[in-house]
Design a protein around this nucleic acid. Structure first.
Lengths: 101, 101
DNA sequence: TCGATAGTTCGATATTTATCGAAGTTTGGC
DNA sequence: GCCAAACTTCGATAAATATCGAACTATCGA
């Protein structure tokens, strides 16, 4: 199992983060990770096929938003909170406020 | 000249705002409007064709990010700052901070 | 070793978005 | 009224994304 190859947030443009967050499923994943701390892909897939879920997790990973830790066969995902806050101050607050409005 | 048909920000999902901001040209427009207050489409087009510029302004308008006021034949655009801040607190701050990083 | 489970990767198709010329609209000036 | 300027709208094409099944990989347990 190779190292997690986390992209450095400094190399990521805000546009790319916005793109990652412009999908409802991905935005929901970010919100749930913020609320629940850590979760497997499976725990967050709705009823969609695994390949689709995997695709969305990859987009989030490449945008620097999440970190994935392999724990046995399951992959545990978590928000890169501090780093995101450091690089894009206020972004998470914005995503997490008024989630229903 | 019919009324500006501004969408109510309450009707706009955060995903849609993120989508609007996920394009480098549109993000640049938002930043320039924030810095300069008001500008015509023409003043902000790089060297791209008018139809392309018009398209991007429409996306920004539909996402509720800008307001367009017709002053003669030219259309003056401005950020809907207070409303955006109201609906998505922190979003603009995030877009406007560290624009070069 | 054989399954079963959890994800990833591949490939093909569908949907969405962007791009840009051409034609149309509105406004102001002569 | 006529023309130019500033946009918008239309339509066609290109490019980027999403979707989903099928095949592949890695890990755990019996």
């Amino acid at each position: 199992m190779r190292p997690a190859r986390l992209p450095a947030l400094d190399d990521i443009a805000l546009e790319d983060v916005f793109h990652a967050l412009s999908d409802p499923f991905r935005l929901a994943v970010v919100r749930r990770l913020a609320a629940e701390g850590e979760a497997s892909c499976q725990a967050l897939e709705g009823d969609r096929p695994k390949s689709s879920v995997s695709h969305h997790f990859r987009v989030l990973r490449q945008a620097g938003l999440i970190r994935t830790r392999n724990e046995g066969a399951t992959h545990m995902n978590a928000l890169r909170r501090e780093e995101i806050e450091d690089r894009f101050p206020g972004l998470l607050a914005c995503v997490l406020s008024k989630q229903d409005g």
